[in-house]
Design a protein around this nucleic acid. Sequence first.
DNA 1: GCAGAATACTTTGACGTCCAACTAAAGTCC
DNA 2: GGACTTTAGTTGGACGTCAAAGTATTCTGC
Lengths: 166, 166
Amino acid sequence: MTRATADPIELARRNWIAAGWGDAADGMALVTSIMRVQQVLLGEVERVLKPSGLTFARFEVLRLLAFTRRGVLPIGKIGERLQVHPASATNAVQRLEGDGLVRRVANPDDGRSVLVHLTPAGRDLVDSCTTLLNTEVFERLPLDAVERGAALAALAGIRRGFGDEA
Amino acid sequence: MTRATADPIELARRNWIAAGWGDAADGMALVTSIMRVQQVLLGEVERVLKPSGLTFARFEVLRLLAFTRRGVLPIGKIGERLQVHPASATNAVQRLEGDGLVRRVANPDDGRSVLVHLTPAGRDLVDSCTTLLNTEVFERLPLDAVERGAALAALAGIRRGFGDEA
DNA sequence: GCAGAATACTTTGACGTCCAACTAAAGTCC
DNA sequence: GGACTTTAGTTGGACGTCAAAGTATTCTGC
């Protein structure tokens, strides 16, 4: 017995079709689904990160620094690798510095550039948070390997389609 | 000849594996991909909507109202159907009212409730914006029907897995 | 060597999202 | 009916994101 779905996205899809926009219905549903799943996953990640005082954005900065040879990167590179606006990178770094997790140092080779150094405290924190995220979120997504692969491929296709270096 | 990929997500995935977190690598890549695709799609949608003065959040409110019989819904229902915090619904409605696209009216049957009415201007605007989004974005996603179906299924799986009424 | 262009950041401002706290109006229960 | 508990919205604050404008430094080209 199929009960009436209360899924807002499925309802929207039906409304789209009923309005005569069948050609766009799946696309609308896909875009809306991505928006919603992003919201859910981000909420999940931030919930796990909450005790550490980190947000996902700041975690990503620390994680990126921890992967580099010396734990140092200019702000511009950070924004580039994380694919966010330079202003967002500046914002995250300033907050991280306020918590003593990174240090900002003028680049001796280029007066315009600011080098962000991961501090020992930052490295410790990002390592424990990574373990936590891995076990609590990334390894527990409610998808089997096949679905995961299909989703990854489709998402990569979208990124590529929009010229996203994927 | 395979050129070195510059895809930040693929780079992160490799770093994850190299660090010994292979079990979490795909999950990390999937979560990160969703975050990124959401960002790209939202940017695309807002770019198309820009001339209208609407944002996607406000468009969704208008669209929802336009689908109802009388173009009226209490604020609470709006937040519920759009799956956002009541405060976000309040925010969107206030801005829409400022632009004359909706009107807020006290609910005669319940003094706590506020009914949001779609105005003629609001209906006209949302209809033209819907057409625009359909043709410029929803019908043009760089995915074939198979990929789209797989992605939709995977995303629905994630939502369901997180108890998201899907 | 110097003017003009490009680069690296920062700042300010507009948005949307959520949470926590608060107000007001219903609904519940002796 | 009056006290207590929900429910509906609103407000204020913290964040992250982007765009646009501004500052400083470096690079280019004549």
